[in-house]
């Protein structure tokens, strides 16, 4: 079983996230691996463990700081870390990012075929959830997205998709791009031994040239969408908190009635 997991470097959810020049501010200090990618790593590790053999690659595309995302994946137990770092990638939209990720996947796949690419269901910075579909389309592989369950049987992958109107079961031949939801599993914590071992593991760094990607087709200049303004939302004004001493429910009702909400 050969699996590649995509992991994104994002600002920590608990930190003060912000924008600089129309792009999400990403710094090493408060950045981390996208939390939902932990489910992708976990799914890959479980498949490798169940098969009793195989290799798991973690791949990230991003600036120098983004290496923290694949280091986290190493701590969780993946075998190899890949980092596409190239200034020309900055400002890419989902299609540019998918093109670069696909080129890196192909490079690994050409060395020895991969069975699966597993991604998170969404990156918690933008939450677009578009990348997994774009990546499957770029690679022209099977697309099995939003999986809350994943099983592999021979050369076929089967997933369960919990959609608002139906629970679907979908099968497709390998190789496939699978995105997993946070219902798919419970991610493990890195143990001390793995954290120590991760320190000495190498991270392979690639540029666009290494991948044979024309820099003009990605990055800000090729992006189909441009952030023209970003500003923090003002905090809510006139907030009231009352402590219930027997009248709290009535006060709540009066507030709703006053606002015309009840």
């Amino acid at each position: 079983m050969r699996i590649l997991v995509t992991v994104k470097f994002v600002p920590d959810l608990q930190s003060q996230r912000s924008f600089t020049d129309g792009a999400v501010t990403r710094t090493g200090d408060d950045g981390t691996m996208n939390e939902l990618d932990e489910n992708a790593v976990e799914a890959a590790l479980q498949l490798r463990e169940a098969a009793g053999e195989g290799e798991v690659y973690a791949l990230t595309v991003g600036g120098d700081d983004a290496v923290a995302a694949v280091r986290k994946a190493l701590q969780l137990g993946v075998d190899h870390a890949l980092h596409v770092a190239d200034a020309s990638v900055a400002g890419s939209d989902v299609f540019g990012t998918a093109k670069v990720l696909a080129a890196a996947v192909r490079k690994v796949h050409d060395e020895a075929p991969l069975d699966l690419v597993i991604t998170g269901m969404a990156a918690l910075d933008g939450l677009t959830s578009m990348l997994p579909t774009a990546l499957a389309a770029e690679l022209d592989w099977s697309q099995l997205t939003l999986a809350s369950g994943l099983t592999i049987d021979g050369a076929t992958a089967t997933v369960v998709r919990n959609l608002p109107d139906a629970h679907e079961t979908v099968s497709a031949p390998l190789p496939a791009v699978v995105s997993v939801t946070d219902e798919a599993n419970t991610p493990r914590y890195p143990n001390f031994k793995l954290i120590m071992a991760a320190r000495s593991k190498p991270v392979t760094t690639w540029t666009l040239e290494d991948l044979g990607v024309d820099a003009a087709t990605v990055g800000a200049a090729a992006a189909r969408t441009v952030v023209v303004d970003a500003s923090p939302r003002p905090p809510r004004e006139n907030r009231t908190v009352v402590t219930d001493t027997g009248e709290g429910g009535a006060a709540l009702a009066d507030f709703l009635i006053e606002r015309g909400l009840a």
């Binding site: 809510r236 907030r239 908190v241 219930d244």
Partner: peptide, 27 residues
């Protein structure tokens, strides 16, 4: 949750909600 609430009640929902319901019905 109180950091983003326009109106908050610190209290047990078992007390607060029934009273709020009764009050709305009464009004």
């Amino acid at each position: 949750i109180f950091e983003i609430a326009d109106f908050g009640v610190v209290g047990d929902l078992g007390d607060v909600i029934p009273q709020a319901i009764a009050r709305i019905k009464e009004v």
